[in-house]
Design a protein around this nucleic acid. Structure first.
Lengths: 147, 147
DNA sequence: CCAATTCCTATACAACCTATAGGATATTAT
DNA sequence: ATAATATCCTATAGGTTGTATAGGAATTGG
């Protein structure tokens, strides 16, 4: 039986980049209390409705503190240096980029026997590379241009 | 005026993975003369027509030698160790993953002045990281499991 | 000539990303 | 009480892109 091994590489879409902009915006307004979606929407020029779906992910992921009602909004839960880009992107980019190796076809003796895919280790290593880098960059690093 | 800077990250779809399988297949049958699309299609279980569009890119990119007509087909132009995964993927994945920074909105003093995007350097570095790695892995490395 | 094969262009389908819309409910400040 | 706001839900529409197929023209070897 051929096992089907997959690697899911990080994928970056607007959802992820907007999420970063939200996080940056919140970081830039630390210590100003709760920031409303409207304020972020105005500053970042993204519709409130679209932001809503993105911020919702960040909030459910435990990255933010929220307050309902008048003067409510969102705040960072931790100082900016304790957030890393990797976790933000993995949270919002639910749909990743799957790279699968099907173990080649019937005719391929080598691959059937080894039951592995020749490209699989490469994808794995690439995936590790990407995530390791993005996990080293903090939100504070972005704000400070410390890249 | 706000400039709109973009980075295009490597994107991996079936087009790219099939291209790799084709290249691996051709490498596994080095010194057997021209290999027809039909042979590759049979071995790799991908329709000839789809393979055609992919091989066409590889061929136009100068990675292959082709011969039309009866007993025609494709051959690697160089030994497998002289091909690197990066060039193969960049060739076939014409559509990349664009990550743009719009320089934030009107309200953001910092970003207007510096005329740059806070996330831009990170995307650039990530892009470099990915391409550097894939440019170090050769086709031969894949065949030998030398990852 | 004939068969095999590359080469070229067009097209259809599905999936997904992007974004918007509307509304119902809960919570908070004043 | 009222206004403002988060929270939650569903639906939907447009556009883009990935995936794959189809048909035929040009070329080559025998």
């Amino acid at each position: 039986m051929l096992t089907d091994r997959k690697v899911s590489l990080m994928m970056i879409s607007t959802k992820g980049t907007y999420a970063l902009r939200v996080m940056i915006d919140l970081a830039q307004h630390e210590n100003e209390g709760y920031i409303s979606l409207k304020a972020i929407s105005d500053r970042q020029q993204v519709s409130m409705k679209y932001l809503e779906s993105i911020v919702s992910l960040l909030n459910k992921g435990g990255l933010l503190t929220s307050l309902r009602g008048k003067d409510g909004g969102y705040m960072l839960k931790k100082p900016a240096e304790e957030y890393h880009i990797g976790e933000i992107l993995r949270l919002t980019e639910g749909g990743l980029m799957p790279v699968s190796c099907h173990g080649f076809s019937e005719g391929d003796e080598e691959c059937r026997n080894v039951n592995s895919c020749l490209t699989f280790p490469m994808w794995q290593k690439l995936d590790t590379l990407i995530n390791d880098y993005l996990d080293k960059v903090s939100l504070r690093d972005l704000l400070d241009g410390n890249i």
